[in-house]
């Protein structure tokens, strides 16, 4: 009588710890690289939602543009991407970033010959393929029409400097 009961308790413990591990693995751990405030929204002028110290471990909930939604204990808010360092490969963020995952499946990714340094070194020139590029090239007018048909609206944005100042460059 006792033995089966013990077994079922043990099974529950094993199942729950497995679920717990899976939960931890999916939470995308990262560390805070630069201390500072958390924002309540993914915007620089949003209200503060507490502060995080450098080195603090956080879990990533999702990414939106240049911002990451993180949780750390009771803290819950948004940080700029460059304030974090990622513990694992970071591939989990891609899965968490809503609507940005997957592939287009228009053409297969695998099969055929590779293109690495040794392939380049031994390649014989294929001039005909270069000439053929002109056949599918399009005019600026056609491209502009295509952009408009897709609902794309141009923006006036200046080039950027390397630093984090966000200053414009001529």
């Amino acid at each position: 009588m006792r033995l089966p009961g013990f077994k079922s308790v043990q099974a529950v413990v094993i199942i729950s710890s497995t679920l717990l591990c899976a939960g931890v693995a999916m939470a995308s751990p990262a560390h805070v690289r630069v201390a500072g405030s958390l924002q309540s929204q993914p915007a620089p002028k949003a209200a503060a939602a507490g502060a995080v110290k450098a080195g603090a471990a956080v879990d990533i909930v999702e990414r939106k543009g240049f911002w990451v939604h993180v949780r750390s204990g009771a803290l819950n808010g948004w940080l700029k991407l460059d304030r974090l360092s990622f513990d694992s490969g970071g591939s989990e963020i891609a899965a968490l970033a809503s609507g940005r995952t997957g592939s287009n499946n228009v053409v297969s990714a695998s099969g055929g010959r590779g293109l690495d340094a040794s392939d380049l070194a031994s390649a014989q020139p294929d001039i005909a393929s270069v000439s053929a590029l002109a056949r599918v090239a399009v005019s600026e007018v056609a491209a502009e029409k295509f952009a408009k048909s897709g609902g794309l609206k141009t923006r006036r944005i200046g080039y950027l400097q390397a630093s984090g100042s966000g200053k414009r460059r001529p």
């Binding site: 939106k64 543009g65 240049f66 991407l81 952009a147 923006r155 950027l160 984090g164 966000g166 414009r168």
Partner: peptide, 19 residues
């Protein structure tokens, strides 16, 4: 580096396009 360099106007453009 991209995140550190992004200006306010670049950040404002971080939304999926119509196309």
């Amino acid at each position: 580096a991209l995140t550190a360099a992004a200006s306010a106007e670049v950040e404002a453009a971080a939304v999926p396009s119509a196309a």
